[in-house]
Nucleic acid binder design. Structure first.
Lengths: 216, 216, 216, 216
DNA sequence: TATGAATGAGTTTTCATTCAT
DNA sequence: GATGAATGAAAACTCATTCAT
């Protein structure tokens, strides 16, 4: 019974699992991480029992959703690098189009409880590192190509955009244009050749990983 | 004319009221608006009953804290204008030093429930308008003095910084340097003469107030 | 400080006492014996503290109201005997006009808790006996004059009319005609020469007092 | 056509539901409608949660109990008509044997809050009408057969006996003989050929229904 | 295996009673 | 003595989690 990750699952069981994760992702994004478990189950079209069979408690579910998001982001980051014509374009694409980041942000950054949880999770940590590594590649490349200011590190990018993405999503559709503009302002702040030096030294991805280890 | 509601309170009662509001502000900022009422009461050094005597229910308390924060911010904004040597300096000061904004952000921006609540509150609305008005003065002056890019409005500033301030405060002290840097990036994005035009038109404070009215 | 019953009271204190009792009586009648103490105090125009100075707890207040009512009823009963032209008239008058009985009924009969309380109260018991004694005189006289059926005792009267009076008063004004009619039906049931013998033997006032003692 | 709402319930769930309703009925009758929900749950042998799963709040439970009682009474009324040898016998049987009426009386007549609640409940209203209709049949028949006085309507009967039934039941077993006698007195008051005309005109069942509609 | 019923601990809220002013 | 603020125990209600079907 210790078989492969998610191999031996009956067809319907696998489908349920998918629906649960999808529902959780949506509901977390809409309502935050405190939604009743029954709500999640209902949205997934299953009973609570089924939900609890897959995920022993709320934490496990949150963790799973976060893992999935992180891994999606990691994949998207890689694709962004591969398919973009410039490092700057890759950066913009990664940051703008990664819808998953919303959930990620909701989960990882809103509550410090959740944050701590993820620190204990090997798989999540792996994906997180992967994202940061790719981000560093992008950052390096963009700085080489002269589009990104030199005094920022991958960690700075991660911080700035986690802020941007924390915006409660889905609810305030009317705010979207305002957010697009805020996004633009941030990009402008990041561009090479802009004004003032930042205080301190670039935040690298090692800084973030270290912090994670320290427990913050 | 400002006397009004909270006049005739016994000395100890007034003290308790203050402690409750202070405790609530702190706890909301630390833990979000869902902390148990008992926790708030305990931190304020009073019994739950006392808390409920002042605020008939949680909503009333949240509203009161938000009002207070908004009014503090409004005052700080005015002071920033008066005491700063340039409009840009006023902007930076307002944005950086307004610790109250943390609570405000927690309350107003994190949950849309809370947001709606505030829309029904005349006093809160008045302060909010006041903040935005002062912000517009600063924006106008800064654009005249050539320090702030021309294609942003007071609303843009409000949005960008509400994002920045949403960061769960007080808890992650380790993040502070990172946040300072993010702050710097945003300021650089706002500076006159920066790169690319933003999409759409400036978000004015009327936009924000209208949105508030629409309810959306 | 063990002086006479309610002698040494400052003028305002006496006034307060009266207002409290009056308010309590009203509110008990309107809302039942579970009204918040603050409500009673407010209606009496005093603070809760004042109320508690006079009556160490809710039970004491209830007891006092009941005592007062019982003693009013006893007085009214005596007057009814003295001022009526016939025993039957006295009975009808006593039963119909004694508005106090409403409160009395509310208190004594609705809840058995209250009932028990009164059993422990010497003064209340004294008034109660007085009422029953007068009622027995009326019953005896009415039966001698041939207007009241012979197979009922003072206890039966007390029971029947306590039922009638239990009607939540004051609220359903629209029911008043209906209640008048019910009252008439009962009187007709009590008239001499009516139909069927009742089961058992007349309930005397001793029965009621005994029951009271037994604790029921 | 009577199937409907409560069909698809698991065996144990249905049992629990029954126990809850039974317990509620008992406890309401014993203690009135203000008993703690936990008490009801305990008596039913379930957790509070279970109780709240079936009935979203106290009001819903009270409503359900009242519905059930009313519907039982309606059924009993029909049986009384069918199985009795005379209309008078039917009346006596209905009034004496309907134990359910106790609960009904507790709920409907004691507190006006509860009364209002029932007015909003279609099913309860239906049963209530049914009871009154059957009562009218009985009244008409009894008057035709000359056993019931002519100047009363179904509404009068309902009023008189709701008074009688308001007696807190079950607790004061010692009062039962006294109540039986009061019951007898009332019946004698209702008999044809008795004394004095009643004030006003007969209270019909339309009067009661109208009143219900008026809300007053 | 899936389901949704049951449980009970945790929260919100009320109110009798005490106590500082 | 009067007042109304403070207290905390108790009641209503919610929801994470377990368990019978």
């Amino acid at each position: 019974m210790v078989a492969g990750p998610e191999v031996k699952l009956r067809a319907d069981a696998r489908r349920n699992l998918g629906q649960i994760l999808a529902a959780a992702r949506t509901v977390f994004a809409e309502t935050g991480p405190d939604v009743p478990m029954e709500e999640i189950a209902r949205r997934a079209g299953v009973g609570v029992g089924t939900l609890y069979r897959r995920f022993p408690d709320r934490e496990a579910l949150v963790r799973a959703v976060a893992r999935e998001s992180l891994s999606d982001v990691a994949a998207e980051a890689r694709r962004a690098v591969e398919e973009s014509s410039s490092a700057w374009a890759a950066l913009v694409r990664l940051l703008r189009h990664s819808r998953q980041l919303h959930v990620l942000a909701q989960l990882t950054l809103l509550s410090s409880r959740t944050r701590e949880m993820l620190c204990d999770d090997a798989e999540a940590r792996r994906s997180y590192r992967e994202v940061l590594t790719t981000l560093r590649e992008i950052v390096n490349a963009a700085q080489r190509e002269g589009t990104l200011r030199d005094d920022v590190g991958a960690g700075d990018i991660a911080v700035v955009f986690s802020l941007l993405l924390k915006q409660t999503p889905a609810t305030h559709t009317s705010d979207l244009p305002a957010l697009e503009r805020a996004f633009g302002l941030m990009l402008d702040g990041l561009r090479a050749r802009t004004g003032t030096p930042l205080p301190g030294r670039p935040i690298t991805e090692e800084d973030l990983l270290a912090e994670e280890t320290r427990g913050s």
